[in-house]
Design a protein around this nucleic acid. Structure first.
Lengths: 136, 136
DNA sequence: CAGCATCCCTCCGGATACTG
DNA sequence: CAGTATCCGGAGGGATGCTG
């Protein structure tokens, strides 16, 4: 596999590009992956990619998420600019969550990974079982 | 955004497809994302996508990884079938790590995400700064 | 050279109870 | 309805020392 796919010239640059130097927060790849690596993040992005949802709807859509984690994950996604939060001053109030343009553009490559995961999950599971069996 | 992109028909199926029912380990997407969401996983996959490396080479390539985490991450990647480990019975022994076919096929969608991350990392950082500033 | 073992500590995420 | 506040157990990950 050609290193040109990274637009990088040396091993050192591979590392620098990944880490952004020495600072963890400046590493683009890990920073982005971190943002969707939460237990519920990809699930919620996937749901919101379909259409906007309200808080309670998401709660019913994903029954086994705690409301603490739903709140926190949505806040994290909003903080990173993936999700837009709109409050309607009704009584009682309702809040609608939707993907931003940034969120939708991020969902495109994420979707590639999702499709790969659905297609190759069995292979990963098999590899894991084989590895564990060999380790006896 | 059309729900057909998921090959799913209803909200319930969205959830079931993500979770695989009730079992976390059976959820393809989270399971795969989990596998590359470690602090060093994507970094090592990216390095090995360039060419095979030996243990010590990876250590020098990524100076600030502890050898404990290098060992463990490589084992995890090997367990999931992404990485092949080959021991050469020299003295002292040398071990070469390389991507498997499964690892290379997984790297293709991952690369899409990597490219997106490099292009849009600034936007994410800006969104984060704006959000934090507004929260005062 | 390429690991394994041990200690330790932070942070993610679950359970529960309470508000505007 | 849509959150906040608090407590707590377990997993992820760093530092250090030892081995074939």
């Amino acid at each position: 596999m050609d290193s040109k796919i990274f637009n990088l010239k040396s091993k050192l640059e591979v590392y620098k590009a990944m880490t952004g130097g020495a600072n963890f927060a400046d590493c683009p790849v890990r920073d982005v992956i971190q943002g969707i690596s939460g237990k519920w993040s990809s699930l919620l992005v996937m749901a919101l990619a379909e259409k906007p949802y309200r808080f309670g709807e998401l709660r019913r859509l994903v029954p086994d998420i705690s409301q603490r984690m739903l709140t926190q994950t949505l806040q994290d996604l909003q903080r990173d600019g993936y999700v837009h939060r709109e409050v309607f001053p009704t009584k009682p109030p309702s809040v609608e969550y939707s993907l931003t343009d940034l969120g939708r553009s991020m969902f495109l490559p994420l979707q590639q990974l999702i499709q790969w995961a659905e297609l190759n999950h069995d292979a990963v599971r098999d590899a894991r079982a084989t590895f564990d069996a060999a380790r006896d």
